[in-house]
Design a protein around this nucleic acid. Sequence first.
DNA 1: GCGATATAGTTGAATAGTTAAACAAACAGT
DNA 2: ACTGTTTGTTTAACTATTCAACTATATCGC
Lengths: 383, 383
Amino acid sequence: MPANRKNARLNTSRILREVWTGDLVSRIDLSRRLVLDKSTVTLLSAELIDRGILMEQGSVPTSGGGRRPTGLGIRGDFASVLGVELLPNAIRLARLDLNGELIEETEHPVEASKERIIDVLAQEIRDVLSGTPGRFLGVGVALSGLVDGVRGCIRRSGLFGIETDLDIVRDLRRRLEIPVMIENDANCCAWGELVARRKQATDDFLFLLLESDYFTTPDTDFPRLSLGMALGLDGRVHHGRSSSSGEFRSLLHRADGDTQFSLNLKDLERMSTDGERRHALFDELASHTALLLNVLGLDRVYVGGDAGPWWQELRECIDARTRSNWPYPGRAELHIGQAGYGRFAAAAGAAAMHLERAFAVKHGEMFEERQLTHGIEALEEQV
Amino acid sequence: MPANRKNARLNTSRILREVWTGDLVSRIDLSRRLVLDKSTVTLLSAELIDRGILMEQGSVPTSGGGRRPTGLGIRGDFASVLGVELLPNAIRLARLDLNGELIEETEHPVEASKERIIDVLAQEIRDVLSGTPGRFLGVGVALSGLVDGVRGCIRRSGLFGIETDLDIVRDLRRRLEIPVMIENDANCCAWGELVARRKQATDDFLFLLLESDYFTTPDTDFPRLSLGMALGLDGRVHHGRSSSSGEFRSLLHRADGDTQFSLNLKDLERMSTDGERRHALFDELASHTALLLNVLGLDRVYVGGDAGPWWQELRECIDARTRSNWPYPGRAELHIGQAGYGRFAAAAGAAAMHLERAFAVKHGEMFEERQLTHGIEALEEQV
DNA sequence: GCGATATAGTTGAATAGTTAAACAAACAGT
DNA sequence: ACTGTTTGTTTAACTATTCAACTATATCGC
C-alpha cells in the first residue's frame, strides 16, 4: 500500500461516521470535531462527493455573520442493506438505505423448520436481491435463541428446536456471495434503536423484547410468552462471553417451572382476562427490569414485540418499580418508549447492524482484507 | 501544530498501549498487530526509548530460525501514580508504577468528617508527593457512595453523610496542581482488575465490593454490610447515566428495610454465629449476582472488601445459583476470584484508573489541551 | 565449521496525506 | 460601499509512513 494511504482512510472513515451520526454537519464542524484542518476536510469530502457517497445539502444555521456553511449528508441511495427476521413459520424482511430509512418492508408465511432454515433464508434473500437494483451492503439475520454473532452460528433455540451449533453464516455467505451477519433478535432490536436514534445523544438503554409464538399457535388465548433482553451500552450492543447475553430467567423461577417466570404456562394462558395474574407477571418483569436499570445506571428502556394492548400497563409497572428500588431519594427521570422500527424492529435492526459496522471508524488493525469487505470501500466496484 | 505531528502521536500512543497491554512484545509483533511497517515501529520506538519511557528487555522466543526479536517493555520507573481510598476514619494509600506494580502502600486512621474531606485528602496526598522523588502521573481518589467521575463530584454518600453535590476534584486539582480523578470505590476496584489482568485476555466481569463499616464501629460483632457492584465491560468500567451504576438494592427489599437486602440490620449483627441466617443473606446476594451474570452473559466475578472468612461459602453460593438460573442445560465455566490488589483494591484501583487513561489510544478528538494533561506527554517537562 | 535459509531490525530515498498561509466567497451590520 | 467575520479553497511546504535494500542474528543440514 503506497505510503500514507492508511491515514487518509482513517480520516475518511472518521468523516463518514461523523456525518452519518451528526445532524447537518458542515466542513468546519468536521474540522473542529475531528481536529483536522479545514483544507483536509475539503479534500477528503470532495473525494467522497465525487464517489457519490456524500452530498451537499441544505445550509447550517450560521453562527454570527459570515459565509453560511454548507451542510453535508450521506447519500442514502448509494446502497441499501437487507434485514431478515425469521420465525418458525413466517418471515419479515426490511430494507434500509444508508441513512437507516426503512424503504421496503414485507412479511409473509414460510415453513422454516430446523432443517430448512438455511434453504428458506437463501431463497427469500435471493428473491429480494435479484428484484432490487443498486448496490447491497449486506444482509443481517435476526432470530430467537442463543446466537453467536461473532462465529456466525446458532447455538440453541427453543422456537426452532435447535440444540447443537448450526453454522449458518458460512453457508449463506457462500451461497449468496454477499456479507452476512446473524444475531439474536433482541440484540438486533437494540442495534436498530442505536441506529434510529444515532443523531440524538447516545444514552445507554435496556431493550425488552416480548415474543409470543403467535405464528405457531395463533389459536390460544394468550400465547406462550418469552422475554429477550438486550443492552445498548456506549453506542454499541453488549455481547457477553460468546454472545450469550440477554438470557433471562426470573429470580422467583421454580425448578419445575416451564416459563422464564414464576408463573406456569397454564397460568399465562388466561392472561388477557385475568387482570390480577397479568399484573403479577408484569410486576415480576418490572422488578427485574428495575434491578438491572439501577445496577447498570440506565435511564432508558425500549419495549418491542407483542406487548400490544398492555403496553401502558407494563410501562407504569416498570416506572413504579424502578423508583421504589432506587436506594436514594428522587430517582432521576426515566424514559420508557416503544421500539423505533415498530413491528419490523428485529428485521430492520438486523440491517442496521450492518450499517453500524459500515460506518465504524476504521482503526489501523481493521485494515485487513477480510474486514474490508464490510465497508463502503468494497461497494464501489459493484455496478 | 507543525504539519503532520498528530498522526505520529496516534501511532505512538498505539504502540505504547500495545506494549503496556501485551506481554513481551517485539517490534515485529507491533508492526503486525498495528499494521504498521517495521521501519515505522523502529523509528517510533527508538524515540520512546530516547525519552526514557520504553526499554529493551529480554528476548522473545523465536519462531523458527532467524534473528531473535528483542522484547520491548514500559519503564515502570518513568513515573508513578497515587491512589487513595478514603473511609470515614481511615485512609489507604497505594502507589503504582507505570506497569501497575504496587510499589508502596500505607494505611492509617484519620478523621474525615463530611466537612474535612477535602482538607484531609489534600494534606495526605501532599505528604506522599513531597516525600517521593520522580514524576507523578496523577492522583485517583476512591470512596463509597454515588460519585460522578466525569464531573468530579460526590453526589451522595451514606458513610460520609453527604446529601448534596460536593465538588471535590476542582478544589483538589487547584490545591495540588496535579491531575486528580475521583470514582466510586467499587468502580475503582474494577479498574484495578482491568489493569492487573490487562496482559491476559480481557473478559468482561462483575465486581462485588463488600464493605463493612469496620472503622466506624469496630466493636459490633458483624458490622453493617453494604454491597457495591461494578462492571468491567469491553476493557472499560461501565458508567451509567451520570456515573450512577452499581447501586444495588435487593428485589426482596421491603419498604421499611434498613439494609440493601431483605434482612434487617439487627439480623445482620448475628451473622458470624447464625449460620442459617448468613446463608440466607449469601443466597440472596448470589441469586441477584446470578441474574446479572446470565443477563449480561458474563463468566467472571471478582469479590473484594471484607468477605474475609466467608469467602469460600459465598463463592459456592454464587456458583450454584448461577448454574440453576441458566435456562439452557450446561452453563459454561464460571470463574469466581478475589480482588487482585487484595486489601488495597480500591486505592490501587483508583491509581490504575489513571494508568488506563494515560495508556489510552489518543484518537483525533482527544488532542485538546485539557485532555493532554492526562498523558505521558505532559510528564516530560517535569524533573 | 560453513553455507543455506529464515526472521528481526535498520537505513535512506520516494511518496503522499496533512498542514499553514494566503486567498476567495458569502454573509451581517453600519 | 466599507468593515468585520466566518466558511471554504488553493498552493507550497512539511513530515510521517512506506518500500526496498541492507545488516544482524538465529536455526538447520551437511
